[in-house]
Design a protein around this nucleic acid. Sequence first.
DNA 1: GTCTATATAGGGATAGAC
DNA 2: GTCTATCCCTATATAGAC
Lengths: 208, 208
Amino acid sequence: MKTKDRIIATALRLFNEEGEPNVTTNHIADEMDISPGNLYYHYRSKDDIIWQIFLDYEKKINQVLTPDENLNYTSMEDMWFYLHMIFEVISEYRFLYRNLIQLMNRIEFLKRHFRRILARKSQTALNIMKHLAEIGSLNADDETIASLADQVALTATFWLNYSIAIYDDNFDEEKKLSHGIFQVIRIVAPFLNEEDKENLNQLSAQYL
Amino acid sequence: MKTKDRIIATALRLFNEEGEPNVTTNHIADEMDISPGNLYYHYRSKDDIIWQIFLDYEKKINQVLTPDENLNYTSMEDMWFYLHMIFEVISEYRFLYRNLIQLMNRIEFLKRHFRRILARKSQTALNIMKHLAEIGSLNADDETIASLADQVALTATFWLNYSIAIYDDNFDEEKKLSHGIFQVIRIVAPFLNEEDKENLNQLSAQYL
DNA sequence: GTCTATATAGGGATAGAC
DNA sequence: GTCTATCCCTATATAGAC
């Protein structure tokens, strides 16, 4: 693994663990046993590093948000799986979400790109729910569906923060993921038909 | 107004406008036309200032969260009014919400106290909804009600951030408030009886 | 590509005069 | 209570040798 890539990997790990504002370029270099000068040979600035990490994130999340031919988004298993992919990416780049407003404020590009991603997330949620309504899994009028999609997007975006704010930061990462997925599904659950609701209960029992 | 109080007022305004991490003690002193030394005569540290502001916030939010004898929380007008009070306090101290995780991380006391407030908010939401269910305004089983209360608390906490993330930061403060209130009410709306739903539509039309 | 050494800047905070 | 002057520290970033 080249130094250039190791910097990204190390920075990402430290940002997630300590929070981006608490991680200096010196920390990153120190953690890797290279000199700060070396780090700055590869990246012009700290924001440049963040920007490169963001591009990785953007690529991954866009992949997940691009409709997958192998998923038909009809069964609750598919939904769970799909949400799991989303939350996995969020979790991998969680430092972005933890200091979202500040980062958007500081890095103009990041603001514009992140906004676009959020819009795509909302839209995807809406599409899936419309589809569920069409096949009769979900009973709700258009207005309610729109509201649910917003709710889902907001919850997916801030669930990790909420969870940190309420509970403690240091409990099992996988548990926290499942918890978030469960939380999102609970939004939609009351509008599902009985069969799917039952499926859901079994899935929750399995993962929580 | 004494200097000690002016510092708090100025700091709060700047924190809200610029974001707490972007406001230095020098900025605050400069804005007030006093010397940094003077500022440090009144408060030992920047975190001390933040802490004092937080105490004001805590007092106000606890007042709102304490059941008011003059409100019976039955009509949608009451609900709107009540939510408006909550969102008003949140908006007045919005810098706390914008950098919540980082602040909780840095100031241990703030973490503990804020957590308690969040718990109270959830609990209050739950109580109100149970009450609405009892008097027949709200049709939902206990599990759904619990889920709705969580949703409401999460939305109230992060709506401002979500709104900043999606739209722009610089649009009418009052509009943003109403929008948040509306967002919270939309969560509950599908479970209301027809009469209350109709009331709600009229209220929304009036404020949005 | 990597190191050492260092420049630069800014923020938090204090000392001591008035 | 308030000011001026200043200290200390840390963070980002660069220069130049190897």
